[in-house]
Design a protein around this nucleic acid. Structure first.
Lengths: 250, 250
DNA sequence: TTCCTCCAATGAGCACTTTTGATTGTTTAT
DNA sequence: ATAAACAATCAAAAGTGCTCATTGGAGGAA
């Protein structure tokens, strides 16, 4: 096992347990105590956990700046596959908007500096990711939404009003049986997405197959407004008609 | 097989496996270990994977986030003391700007929801910190600057132009012997600070004592433009005159 | 096309570094 | 006071970077 792999495993275990003893880690990862101690020291110095006598403690929201970055994303591989397909739609020099969702975040992997794309986003995470990859991107300002690490609000809306987008890539909580895209996030964020929608030539909805048939408290937009839906599996029978002509299975 | 082809194969394998050993790659691609090592080094430097002793790790969206250089803040206690004092200047309902610097970041600790302050910042870190503390804040958008985790650029400048600030809190690389506040960060970020300066009633400069007598490549503004300087120790003799009347030792 | 030259890419050998677990004596928590 | 956890040190093993000779493909000339 690689060292980095062990580091990740330690953080994953801590994610579930809040506290863990060095002994416990040594047993579960089949390495000796000194090794675990060294690992914990290293992870502590990276600011990923808090070392304490006998073990370690998970960072809580007070200490962590970019929280939950080691929490496992659900079906990460499906999301990545979807995003790979999504990125392949992007033509050179196009202007694209990517929203703040764990799904759309993966597009970052498939963007390169060379493609001369103008990226606009309201996602803090995407901004940080692209920044470290050396890809220029414009981030909307505004008020940071607690659960999504996305900006929203009137400042964000004003900022995006300066653009005309070729593509808008977004995701949400799900699509209900009547073909309405629904979400649980803040209304402010939904307003923003609706505004971007009006400014975008092509609207691309990224949906892992589990999203079909989901219900949530807010209506974002009808599926009719979307041009392309990218998913990872054939949707259930009852949704075939609504999705006809716009679905791509990655 | 071409080199680039092999690169792609490596990335494909990593796509499925998340972690892989150099040995494994060498076997599957029918090349020697040195070659695989060279490949991994190259791919790592291109930012397409993370090299780790014995192999490599896939770069997924979650891991890109954490800045690799977890530089520890220098003299954190002095900075906190300075920021505590800075926060005590803030009156209820005032509108304040806090810039992207490790020093000013500490103000977050001393802000409470109740004080009804409107906070505006170009710092991603501050935005995240305040957000987890439940304090509302407006973040400028713009282009993320690589080293400071701050936004800058014309969108940021336009955003702040909508405000009139009661206080501006900022820091920089230092003050040189002629009383000029100097910095090493991107010019874009300095333009932003200058713009905020013009919109602020009181300019408060936060300077750990080590900043006195420092030189750097960019001139930010003369000390004359600043109303208050907060530091943690009496400044050196030669700077007393310039600082007269505006210095507070926390 | 075919041959030749050149240069980048590769693999082997070797010295060096990193990682790891065992052992030691010291520190810490209860 | 006592047991657990710790840091420090060491040696073995694995992994690595370096140099250098060899290979094999790209590009130009016959």
């Amino acid at each position: 096992m690689l060292k980095e792999e062990r580091y990740d495993k330690i953080l994953e275990l801590l994610d579930e347990e809040m506290y863990t003893s060095a002994q416990n880690l040594a047993n579960r990862l089949y390495v000796s105590m000194p090794t675990i101690r060294r690992d914990l020291a290293e992870l502590d110095s990276r600011g990923l956990l808090i070392r304490s006598h006998g073990g370690a403690k998970r960072l809580n929201s007070e200490h962590i700046l970019m929280p939950a970055n080691h929490r496992k994303s659900i079906s990460p591989n499906e999301k990545r596959r979807i995003c790979k397909k999504a990125a392949s739609l992007i033509t050179e020099k196009s202007v694209i908007f990517i929203d703040a969702s764990t799904t759309a975040l993966n597009i970052a992997e498939y963007l390169t500096e060379r493609s001369l794309v103008t990226v606009v986003t309201n996602s803090v995470k995407l901004a940080l990711t692209l920044s470290t990859r050396g890809i220029k991107c414009y981030t909307t300002g505004g008020e940071l939404q607690n659960n999504s690490y996305g900006f929203a609000g009137s400042y964000a809306e004003e900022m995006i009003s300066k653009f005309n987008f070729d593509f808008m890539f977004f995701s949400s909580h799900g699509i209900n049986d009547s073909g309405m895209i629904v979400d649980t996030t803040s209304p402010a964020e939904n307003f923003l997405r609706q505004a971007v929608c009006r400014l975008s030539a092509k609207k691309v909805f990224l949906a892992v197959h589990t999203k079909f048939g989901q219900q949530a408290q807010f209506n974002l937009m009808p599926l009719d407004d979307v041009d392309i839906v990218i998913t990872d599996k054939e949707p259930p029978e009852k949704m075939r008609d609504i999705l006809k002509g716009k679905i791509i299975v990655a």
